[in-house]
């Protein structure tokens, strides 16, 4: 039995998710910041974390963007294979939702139409849309506004099988040290391992959808997450790179089968405002 959905139903949902994600940090993120404040040893970083917690609360209560970089809008849609779309092209509906959300939420328009000519589109469109076809008749939409301070620190390494887990760890820790305070730590770090270069990159983004504190269900990947989290926090970078004991709120690893000759690794940095909002249609 097909479920017919008109693409225009997406518009108000995506509009609302853009505003929700940018103005109202989830309790999962604010709790993680409060926990970081308890663990942080540097007085300067404690002061910074206090400000970030107060800022999140103030933004939430006053319907303001918690950060001025409201990002390029990354959207994941898991579309049930029993859904049949009608109406305008889906991408147009997605962009209309983004347009309305960034306009009505007083969010910054940070997208240029061409990477070389660089003229602002003035409505934050187009979004970057990743679709997955899944079983069922529902559509799960996640909006993840991605700021550039953290995005510019992302990294891809085409490792070889011989590099193994040690090679993965070294590449991640090198990327964290190189990034320093630029991506606005304390970070959530998404790591994609396996597949092809593009698959690893998408996995590293999908990893950011997971709640802070949740581990990968596969024990060897959960162990890698724990080990990386400890070593990243031993880097000394601290909140906003001012020197401290909490550099990451969490590390999320996602893996996929790969070629006998490959070990692709992608690292996505996400800032302390790990913004995302989700809805199910």
């Amino acid at each position: 039995m097909m479920r017919v959905l008109n693409t225009k139903e997406l518009i108000p949902v995506i509009r609302g998710l853009c505003i929700q994600a940018c103005q109202h940090l989830s309790p999962n993120v604010t709790d993680a910041l409060k926990d970081a404040r308890r663990r942080e040893e540097s007085p300067l970083c404690q002061e910074i974390l206090d400000m970030l917690i107060e800022n999140a609360d103030y933004a939430d209560k006053n319907n303001l963007a918690c950060c001025q970089d409201t990002g390029m809008t990354l959207i994941f849609m898991e579309i049930g294979q029993e859904v049949c779309w009608e109406g305008e092209p889906l991408m147009e509906a997605v962009n209309e939702g983004v347009r309305q959300g960034y306009q009505d939420g007083y969010l910054r328009k940070s997208v240029v139409a061409d990477p070389i000519r660089r003229v602002n589109t003035r409505d934050n469109t187009p979004a970057v849309l990743h679709t997955e076809i899944v079983p069922g008749d529902q559509v799960t939409i996640t909006v993840l506004p991605k700021g550039a301070g953290s995005e510019n620190m992302c990294h891809v390494s085409m490792l070889t099988p011989a590099d193994g887990v040690e090679g993965i760890k070294k590449a991640v820790l090198d990327a964290v040290d190189y990034a320093g305070g630029k991506p606005c730590p304390p970070l959530v770090i998404g790591i994609g391992i396996g597949g092809t270069m593009d698959k690893a990159a998408v996995l590293s983004k999908q990893a950011l959808r997971r709640e802070i504190g949740n581990r990968n269900p596969q024990p060897h990947l959960a162990e890698l997450e724990e080990e990386l989290l400890k070593e990243i926090n031993d880097s000394g970078i601290g909140a906003l790179g001012m020197g401290g004991t909490v550099t990451a709120l969490d590390v999320h690893v996602e893996a996929y089968p790969t070629h006998i000759a490959c070990l692709p690794l992608a690292i996505t940095f996400q800032c302390h405002a790990c913004r995302h909002a989700q809805a199910v249609l």
Binding site: A59, N63, L64, A65, C66, C67, Q68, D69, T70, Y106, L107, R108, S110, A148, G149, N152, K182
Partner: peptide, 23 residues
């Protein structure tokens, strides 16, 4: 080094803060 959000109703400027200096 800053690019602010637009001002909402009753405000002179939207949320604002520093961008990454290295650029």
């Amino acid at each position: 080094y800053c690019g602010p959000c637009p001002a909402g109703p009753g405000r002179i400027i939207g949320p604002l803060g520093p961008t990454t200096s290295a650029r």
